[in-house]
Structures are given as structure tokens and as C-alpha cells.
């Protein structure tokens, strides 16, 4: 087994590599003091006064569980700095569909983050459905990401983020790279 210990809080990773995470996660806004960037559960986020949500001095992101609907967020996407979609287990795939709906269908411009059971075998899928970042605790995944070994395929049979068409190829096919 790997000798790298699990990172309890998790490391934040995006296509360009590991990065600092300015956000802290909390159940309510009250318990975050004056932290500049906060992620709240969907119900708490929706319960905020609009003026608080849109305050310019801090960023308030929202975390959505697989069983929760993103519909209430859709009219507000322009004002949301971050949406964290949860993967309580790697095999709960609901957040992939939400990622596609948010990024590709509704053009969400903020940060889309995967949190929870993020494993190396799913990272490529997450990027392709629209996730910008993922919060990773799993040791082997951290190692492989550090080596930039994504287990990705040389070509895709579906459109998706981070890929482009090749002239003359079937319309559904893509190759990695570009937008």
C-alpha cells in the first residue's frame, strides 16, 4: 500500500494542479466569523437574505447533496461564486448529471467543485462533465494527481469539457485538449 497518509482536510486540485483552497465549509454563516470564503449547505444558503448572499466583501458558495435539486439555483447562477456537488460514495453518479446541466446547459461561470469520495478512476469523468476542481483526500489519488496520471482515454465517444472535435470524425467523437 501507499506510504502517503490520507490528507484529512483534503487537497484542492484542478486541471492545472494543486492549489490553495480559500473556502471553509460550515453549517451556518454564523459559525464562520468573518472568513472571506465560505461554503454552506443548500438549505442554509437558500435561507440567507439576498443582500447577505450577494455581499461583495465575502464569497458564499453552496454545497449540494446528490438527493437535492439544483433547480432553485438555476435563476441565481450569475451570483454564485462556487457550487460544490457531493459524492458521498464514488458510485453515486447523480452529481455528474448536475455538473453537465450547470456547466454545459446553463453556462455556470463560477467554480464547480467535486467533494467527497473523489477517486482517481473518476477524475477524468469529473473534468469532462464540467467540474473545475475537486477536493481530494484519498492517498493513491493524491499521488497519481501529483504525477498527473489521470487514467484518461486517448479519445472520447462523447462531447464534453476539455475536448475538441477532429475534422472528418463522427460528430459525437472528441479528443482531449482545448475547450
Amino acid at each position: 500500500m501507499s506510504d502517503i497518509s490520507e490528507s484529512v482536510a483534503g487537497e484542492l486540485w484542478g486541471r492545472e494542479g494543486f492549489r490553495e483552497d480559500p473556502y471553509i465549509a460550515a453549517e451556518t454563516l454564523e459559525e464562520t466569523g468573518d472568513a472571506p470564503a465560505v461554503i454552506l449547505p443548500l438549505a442554509a444558503w437558500l435561507g440567507l437574505d439576498e443582500s447577505v448572499r450577494n455581499a461583495t466583501n465575502r464569497k458564499i458558495g453552496v454545497s449540494v447533496a446528490p438527493g437535492e435539486s439544483i433547480d432553485p439555483l438555476l435563476p441565481l447562477l450569475d451570483t454564485i461564486p462556487l457550487i460544490a456537488l457531493q459524492f458521498p460514495a464514488f458510485n453515486d453518479g447523480r452529481s455528474y448529471s448536475k455538473a453537465d446541466i450547470l456547466k454545459n446547459q446553463n453556462h455556470f461561470k463560477g467554480e464547480l467543485r467535486a467533494v467527497g469520495d473523489v477517486l482517481i478512476d473518476q477524475v477524468a469523468y469529473m473534468l469532462r462533465t464540467g467540474f473545475d476542481t475537486m477536493k481530494v483526500t484519498h492517498a493513491v489519488t493524491l499521488t497519481r494527481l501529483a504525477e498527473h496520471n489521470l487514467h484518461d482515454a486517448p479519445g472520447y465517444y462523447q462531447p464534453g469539457r476539455g475536448s475538441h472535435t477532429v475534422p472528418g470524425a463522427y460528430s459525437w467523437r472528441r479528443v482531449p485538449g482545448g475547450a
Binding site: D100, Y156, Q158
Partner: peptide, 16 residues
């Protein structure tokens, strides 16, 4: 065949 290709390693639909 088109469905076979489209469904191969589908990023959104591999964890139904």
C-alpha cells in the same frame, strides 16, 4: 453501433 460508441466510458452515465 452508434449507441455502443456513445455509451462507451460515458462520463455522465458510468455510475448509474
Amino acid at each position: 453501433e452508434i449507441l455502443r460508441q456513445w455509451s462507451s466510458m460515458h462520463p455522465e452515465f458510468s455510475y448509474l
